[in-house]
Simulated assay, not measured.
Amino acid sequence: MMRKIAILIILVSLVFSACGDDKEPAKVDNVKIAVTLPTGIEIGQDMKNAAQMALDEANGKAGDIQVELLFFETTDDSGNPFSAEKEREAATKAISDSQVVVYIGASTSSEAREVIPLLNKADIAVLSPAATAPGLTKPGYGAGEPGKYYPTGRHSFFRLVTSDEGQGSTAARWAKELGYTKIYLIDDTSDYGIGLTGIFEVTARDLDLTVLAHDHFNPDNETPETYAETARHIVDAQPDLVYIGAYASYGGIELIQALRTANPDIQIMGGDGLTEQDIADASGSPLNNIYATSATLPGSGLETQAGISFVDKYQSTYSKPPNPYVITTYEAVKVALYAIEHAESPTRRGVLDKLADLGDFSG
């Protein structure tokens, strides 16, 4: 008799469980977007302003859902604005907050490599305004890339810029068109710097340009004296052009100033890391006349009505034109809001599904 009662209880429990599965999922009224930025430098604060502007224009909502931006700082105690450790700390906190449904950040390739796998396991999509390493999304660049960044087997990283394979190869072709034939390469040992200069080097050799050397410097360890020594070594090699894979805000300006002190006429080219606002604001003629490519359009290149309106509004609000990565940060928030509003459910998985199949979205 006891056995029959036990079986009956189990059957009743299963029936009620099945009925429970038919219930509508709980309505979500509030979600968060995690945003990581190097607000310790000017461009980071500008990007934060743009992110907030995008949310304010939507009245703080994605459809009927209230949205909060949860900001995290990526500048560490040593002054590195793009600390992979700080990015990892931010990602861990975002994962632990159940209201976070999407992550905007991983602005550099080093930071992206650090956090994409963590967030992938948590079904949190990553929208990066600036990470350009090709191996984050394409095979053939590093061992196990890009699969090792996606332990679930599902891609969850989306960038709003082109990759360095475009920048590096375009820069090499540009150097040849300008008539430069002897190139000295130097990178800052970051994933970005190494990858960018590596692609430039391969293309340059294919174009029969002479690569005099591929050198490295580490902003964490440099002093004015070591920058000067590196610059003298480069100048002694007598290159037509120095190609720099580095960030202006973290060692790039110091290296350029040292080079121009050693030889005021030395020609310099770099990637989008040298298009940061910092290099335009830094005083002194050594920072003039530098060639640089960009992974995205500057504000002056936006020709749509929406783009022109954004540039005008940003400039009138902050009394300066938006940096290219201000634009991509603004757009990242707009994309995230669209995905939250139009997802089947505004959950982590729902938002990821929508970002993977965005459909018609007009930025």
Rank of each mutant, 00 (worst) to 15 (best):
G193T: 09
A84T: 12
G363I: 15
D206N: 15
S309Y: 00
Y227H: 04
G251W: 05
G284P: 13
E73M: 01
T197A: 05
P264L: 13
A58I: 11
A54V: 10
Y141M: 07
D123I: 00
D215S: 15
R173H: 06
D97E: 13
V211Q: 09
I234H: 01
N221W: 04
G350R: 05
T39G: 06
G307E: 00
P81S: 04
L287Y: 14
L302M: 10
Q66K: 13
G273R: 06
S163Q: 06
I194W: 00
A237P: 01
A58P: 08
Q238W: 03
A50S: 14
I244D: 02
A332K: 06
D208A: 10
T36N: 04
D187I: 11
M269F: 10
A122S: 12
M2T: 07
L70F: 10
S190L: 07
D240F: 08
T210W: 00
A246S: 15
T152G: 10
H214A: 08
Y184Q: 06
K32V: 10
S285I: 13
A228Q: 11
L196E: 00
I253S: 05
Y325L: 09
R113E: 14
V326N: 01
G60R: 03
I43L: 11
A106S: 14
A90P: 02
S309V: 03
E303C: 06
G60V: 02
L69D: 07
T275K: 02
D22C: 11
G147C: 00
K176N: 02
T189R: 10
I266R: 03
Y330P: 02
E225G: 02
S96V: 04
T329D: 03
D46F: 05
A332M: 07
A94R: 01
T39S: 14
E87K: 00
K27V: 15
T162L: 13
Q267A: 14
D208R: 09
S345M: 08
G252V: 02
T226W: 08
G271I: 11
L274D: 02
G195Y: 00
A34K: 00
P239M: 12
S110I: 09
A106L: 09
F361L: 04
F16I: 15
Q267N: 14
S345Q: 13
G193Q: 06
L352S: 05
A306L: 10
S107D: 10
F217P: 01
T74V: 08
F310T: 06
D312A: 15
M2S: 08
I308N: 04
L127H: 01
G284T: 03
S190F: 11
